[in-house]
Structure formats: C-alpha cells, structure tokens
C-alpha cells in the first residue's frame, strides 16, 4: 500500500501546484481582459493553428502568440515549462514520418505548440469562475456549468478525503501484502471514497437548497481593453489569411 500512497501523494501534489497556480500567478494585461473575449480568442487562435499545414502560417500564428504573451507580461518560463513536454511528445510521435518528410514533422509539432500556447494564455490568466460565467454567457446549459463549478470547487476537498482514507488504511496495515492484496485493498479504498462522495453530494444539495440555489451568471461589461485585444486577435487572423 505504501507504494500506492507515495505515488498518489506525489502525483496529486504535482497536480495541486498546477491546479491553483494560475490563481496566484503575477497579474498581467491579459488578466484584465474579459473572460468571454479570451475564450473566443483562444478558440480562434487554436482553429487558425490547426487548420493549416502552411509553414509560414503556422510560424505567423506562433510568433503572434509569443509576442502577445511577452508584451502582456505573462511568465514565459512558466509557459514553456507547461508546454514543452507535450510538444516533445508530439515530435517523437511523428519522428518516424519525419525521416521521409522532415517538414511534416516540424509543422505538426509547431501546430501543437501554438495550440498549447493559446490554451495556456487562457488558463494562466483566467479564473475558473470567469470561465464558467463565460460559458453561461454563451448559453452552455446551466446544469452543465453548475456541475463544472461544483466539481472544480470540490476537487480539492475530494483529494483530502482520498488522502484521509489512504492514510487511515496505511496506519492500520500490519504486514506488506501481495500485489493482489494491494489491488483488492485499493479497490475497497476507492469504493469507500465514492460512497463518501455520494453522501457529501447529498449534504451539498441540501446546503444549496437552504441557501436559495447556485446560479453562475455573467455580469461584466466589455471594456476598452477588451476591444483592443479583440482587434489584435482580428489583426492576427487577418495577417494569417493574407500571407
């Protein structure tokens, strides 16, 4: 069981850092832009990046994204830390094909890198509450957005619950079991964890009803800075089209 516990704590700690890091990252100009504008811009950037195999277009979108991120004051080191692994993975996946067509390997990898940067620009500068409000503004069903919001808010609590169960099991362990034993006990631990999550869901439902419901709605207005950013995105798309 100790192997499982160690791995879990290590993995979850890594994820926790990523999970909340954008909430604490330095404020940049992009942080001040409306979540709706950033969400649409991200979709535009990703579509532009993945809808072409022209090297000049892919490099254009990549350069625009990097310049916008740098000028806006995003932490570029942190951004590269977050994108390098999957970019490298994508390069390795298409490496055998790159032997015959090196340009394909380069363009494929750059497309993935550009998409990842576009998504990171959104993630690093937008709170999850803003994202949920933006989704509601774009008419994503309330049921789905509310579930997203609850899942996000309770994820940390559920991690703690899981740790508590695992630690309790570990403290009761008197001998190191076989692999089969480990898996069986692990299954039981996760079973207990799901039972507790059901019971918590019941309590949360009652609490929500007692407080008069849980509505995520958008109240912000489009500002001058949002229009400037939209113009930059529009200009990027225009430049992408004409080259």
């Amino acid at each position: 069981m100790h192997e499982l516990l160690e791995r879990t704590i290590k993995e979850a700690s890594d994820y926790f850092q990523n999970f909340l890091i954008h909430e604490y990252s330095n404020k940049s100009a992009l942080h001040k832009i409306d979540g709706r504008v950033k969400l649409v811009s991200t979709v535009v950037f990703v579509v532009l990046a993945v809808s072409t195999f022209s090297l000049s277009k892919v490099i254009t979108i990549l350069l625009f994204l990097l310049v916008i991120s740098a000028i806006a004051g995003l932490n570029m080191k942190r951004m590269f830390e977050r994108i390098w692994l999957f970019t490298l993975f994508s390069f390795i996946v298409v490496l055998p094909l790159s032997v015959y067509n090196p340009l394909y390997g380069v363009i494929f990898t750059l497309r993935v890198a550009a998409s990842l940067i576009a998504v990171q620009m959104l993630i690093m500068t937008t709170s999850f509450a803003d994202l949920c409000s933006s989704l509601r503004y774009f008419k994503v069903p309330k049921t789905f957005v509310s579930a997203l919001w609850i899942a996000y808010r309770y994820a940390i609590l559920m991690f703690r619950e899981l740790f508590a169960i695992l630690l309790a099991r570990e403290s009761r362990r008197v001998a190191k079991g076989s692999h089969m034993d480990l898996w069986r006990k692990g299954g039981e631990a996760v079973g207990l964890f799901f039972l507790r999550s059901f019971e918590r869901a019941e309590r949360v439902q009652l609490a929500i009803e007692a407080r008069g419901g849980n509505v995520v709605e958008y109240r912000g207005k489009i500002k001058k800075l949002d229009l400037i950013y939209s113009t930059i995105v529009g200009f990027t798309a225009f430049w992408w089209v004409i080259i």
């Binding site: 579930a147 869901a201 439902q205 929500i208 849980n214």
Partner: peptide
C-alpha cells in the same frame, strides 16, 4: 447537479 458535480 451536486451529485454528478461531486462524483466528477
């Protein structure tokens, strides 16, 4: 909503 939010 809370059920599949929390189970999620």
């Amino acid at each position: 909503t809370p059920l599949f939010g929390i189970v999620a």
